[in-house]
């Protein structure tokens, strides 16, 4: 049995791995089979991760995080988790290839998945003009007219990126103000290929074999109108990926995994959660990385307490000590 298994290979998972590996816990990190590196793998320039004043490409940043985690002894497995057994002191993780791994502590950092529009045409037209990945598919829309749905940073980034290829990019947003950061907004507003369509949502997507347009509904008046398009990129937000822990871990009203205060402790002892899967608000690479750090330190602490007394109650007592404001660092050093 191992000390610790980390599920997830975004900034939270790899940062937790860096800390856990440096604590000589020899973490096993389950990276997924086709989504290694997480959401940043589909972004271009990351300009807000501290330490990279010139910016860094999302995939490069994730490659560096992985290299850093591996340098200290993290073992990375490229497979998907199909089931979890979290009850009791031994946590069991079963993978797509049938293997089961066991550990005393588990860090759950599965991030979030693109939110769908919820329209019946979505399934059929997905990959046929309807896309969730501008960096993958923008190339195929040279000199075309396309729309990006959404008003956050990802929508602005995608719209700006897509103007490299498309002749015209509409940004369709359900409100009359954007949620995106000022710098991303300004970049999109200043781009002459981008036109904003405010207070509008997509009521229907047109096309049988490929997207030909959409029906837009005005969110104020309810009025509908058609818009001809060659492509549609959806960036309306993300939902935490919790399907593997439904009924096993307590969730919040927002659907994220519930953790105690500023810690990473979930409703089950020995199971810690980090990154977008616990965060409905901030969802940044750097906050996820910070959250991964918290999870690794909490897990390290839990394991140390287990070892000290070989009883889970002791872990709880120490956990309470942290709640009462005793610095984690002090506790670790005192040991």
């Amino acid at each position: 049995m191992r000390d610790i298994i980390i599920i997830g290979s975004g900034p939270a998972g790899f940062t937790a791995a860096i800390y856990a590996a440096r604590a000589e816990l020899k973490p096993l990190l389950i990276a997924s089979s086709v989504e290694i590196g997480g959401e940043l793998m589909n972004t271009t320039e990351v300009e807000n991760f501290p330490g990279f004043p010139e910016g860094i490409m999302g995939p490069d940043l994730m490659g560096k995080m992985q290299a850093q985690a591996e340098r200290f002894g993290t073992e990375v497995v490229y497979d998907d988790v199909v089931s979890l057994d979290l009850e009791g002191p031994v946590k069991r993780v079963t993978l797509g290839n049938g293997e089961t791994h066991e550990a005393s502590a588990l860090i759950y950092a599965t991030g979030s998945a693109y939110r769908k529009l919820g329209l019946p045409e979505e399934e059929v037209l997905s990959g046929h003009g309807l896309s969730w990945c501008a960096t993958c598919d923008g190339f195929f829309f040279r000199q075309k007219t396309i729309a990006v749905i959404g008003g956050g940073d990802s929508a602005m980034e995608e719209a700006t990126f897509l103007t490299r290829f498309a002749d015209k990019v509409y940004v369709v947003h359900r409100r009359d103000t954007l949620k995106a950061s000022k710098i991303m907004q300004q970049r999109a507003i200043d781009n002459e290929k981008i036109e904003f369509i405010w207070n509008s949502e997509v009521a229907a997507i047109h096309g049988t074999t490929a997207v030909t347009g959409v029906t837009l509904r005005d969110t104020v008046t309810g009025e509908e109108r058609g818009l001809d398009l060659d492509g549609l990129f959806v960036a309306i937000g993300n939902d935490p990926r919790t399907h593997l822990v439904h009924g096993k871990l307590e969730l919040t009203r927002e659907g994220t995994i519930h953790v105690e205060g500023r810690s990473s402790r979930t409703s089950v002892a020995g199971v810690f959660a980090a990154g977008d899967v616990i965060d409905p608000f901030y969802r940044q690479a750097v906050t996820a990385a910070g959250s991964g750090t918290v999870a690794a330190l909490d897990a390290e602490h839990y394991l140390a307490a287990l070892e000290d007394t070989a009883s889970p109650e002791a872990a709880e007592i120490e956990a309470e000590a942290i709640d009462e404001g005793v610095a984690i660092d002090g506790l670790v050093r005192a040991r």
């Binding site: 290694i36 793998m41 995939p59 490229y78 960096t135």
Partner: peptide, 14 residues
Amino acid sequence: WAEWCGPCRAVSPI
């Protein structure tokens, strides 16, 4: 596939 497509590179070994 294409070099700049992350998911393409990820699925390639499969």
